[in-house]
């Protein structure tokens, strides 16, 4: 009887105070949706340094990049994460598109070449994440095949998904449209750049990892 009593309390306190360790969170989405900006915001909040560089030129992130042991404490909850920032997934990459951003032909071709490899790497990493934050630009149409393909693959792999509707600080942002497009998933509207609604994002993140 006494042993059962001790065992019950031991399990109870383990559940209440346990810290999830090394939860691998992937940041996925189309190019220029703000994946790196969001990953940077989280890293700055909790470890004081950025994860990667963000830019207005599409496909700035062309390699999968990580930050390990990011310990997040929020509203009495705590977990340690490995943040995995992935290159934007696209179905087309044309080096000529980069010329409009001031790159010369050689730089644009090199960027396009690296971007194609980045997309392949991002897809391969789907097999090695515990949960995914899909970062979408809330000023853009969410009904794109890239978004559908990413979500379809996560569902097939039974990987929990949270959708961050980013850029809500911009005119034309429409979080409701993203909610309507993906009614089965949690959607949180944020501005990673300005830190808007970031507390709601952390709430959603801790809800997400309950499913891991």
């Amino acid at each position: 009887m006494a042993n059962n009593f001790v065992s019950f309390f031991k399990r109870f306190f383990e559940d209440v105070f346990k810290t999830k360790k090394n939860v691998k969170i992937g940041f996925y989405g189309p190019p220029n949706s703000g994946k790196t900006t969001l990953a940077n915001k989280i890293c700055l909040d909790w470890i004081g340094e950025e994860l990667g560089s963000a830019s207005k030129v599409p496909h700035e992130t062309r390699n999968v990049q990580f930050k390990e042991k990011v310990n997040i404490k929020h509203n009495g909850k705590q977990a340690t994460f490995k943040l995995i920032d992935t290159p934007g997934i696209a179905t087309r990459i044309d080096y000529e598109d980069f010329l409009a951003y001031g790159l010369n032909s050689k730089e644009a071709k090199q960027r396009a070449k690296e971007a194609t490899k980045g997309v392949i790497d991002a897809i391969k990493w789907l097999d090695d994440v515990d949960a995914v934050v899909i970062v979408l630009d809330s000023t853009k149409n969410p009904y794109t095949q890239v978004n559908v393909t990413i979500i379809g693959n996560l569902v097939a792999r039974k990987i929990p998904v949270l959708i961050a509707a980013n850029k809500i600080d911009l005119r034309g942002a429409d979080t409701k449209k993203i909610e309507a497009a993906f009614p089965e998933y949690g959607v949180v509207g944020i501005s990673a750049k300005q830190g808007k609604n970031i507390d709601e994002f952390y709430d959603s993140l801790f809800n997400l990892i309950k499913k891991v």
Partner: peptide, 15 residues
């Protein structure tokens, strides 16, 4: 979904 992902991967290789 996996075929769509494969199609995107193969597309990138072709590019």
């Amino acid at each position: 979904p996996q075929e769509e992902a494969d199609l995107i991967e193969e597309t990138m290789r072709k590019i």
